[in-house]
């Protein structure tokens, strides 16, 4: 079963994403900031990361660039944020994200992109 880590300080958003992803049969874990996400990744890297930008302690950019620079995981990362400016997108890509979506992400959109990022054939 593919493992996905949701990193977001907002419990509601975590729950929203979790319910969509678990409904589709993924194994989901959560972290509230980059530090916790890093600890969990060090124990066992995930197959996909869904990362918020603005979080306390360590934000999404910081987490991704650390994940990439320490070569902990090469798994695709999907960055989601309510901020839609194009420089956020560029920053996200530069930090190591592979796709940038604007919150709220509709359930079907989230699933399609997760399946693609995980290399799964759509049923």
């Amino acid at each position: 079963m593919k493992r996905i880590l949701i990193i977001d300080d907002a419990a509601t958003v975590r729950m929203y994403h979790r319910s969509i992803l678990e409904g589709a049969g993924y194994q989901v874990d959560e972290a509230v900031n980059g530090i916790e996400a890093m600890e969990k990744s060090l124990q066992e890297p995930f197959d996909l990361y869904i990362v918020d930008i603005n979080m306390p302690k360590q934000d999404g950019y910081g987490f991704l660039s650390e994940l990439r620079s320490r070569d902990i995981s090469q798994a695709p990362a999907l960055m989601v944020s309510t901020e839609g400016a194009s420089n956020d997108r560029t920053r996200a890509y530069a930090a190591g994200a592979n796709l940038y979506l604007v919150k709220p992400v509709k359930p079907d959109q989230l699933l399609i992109h997760c399946r693609l990022l995980l290399g799964e054939v759509h049923p």
């Binding site: 660039s65 650390e66 994940l67 990439r68 620079s69 070569d71 995981s73 090469q74 190591g96």
Partner: peptide
């Protein structure tokens, strides 16, 4: 610094 990670991802 994380270029190789970024390329891999």
């Amino acid at each position: 610094a994380w270029l190789s990670g970024r390329i891999r991802a």
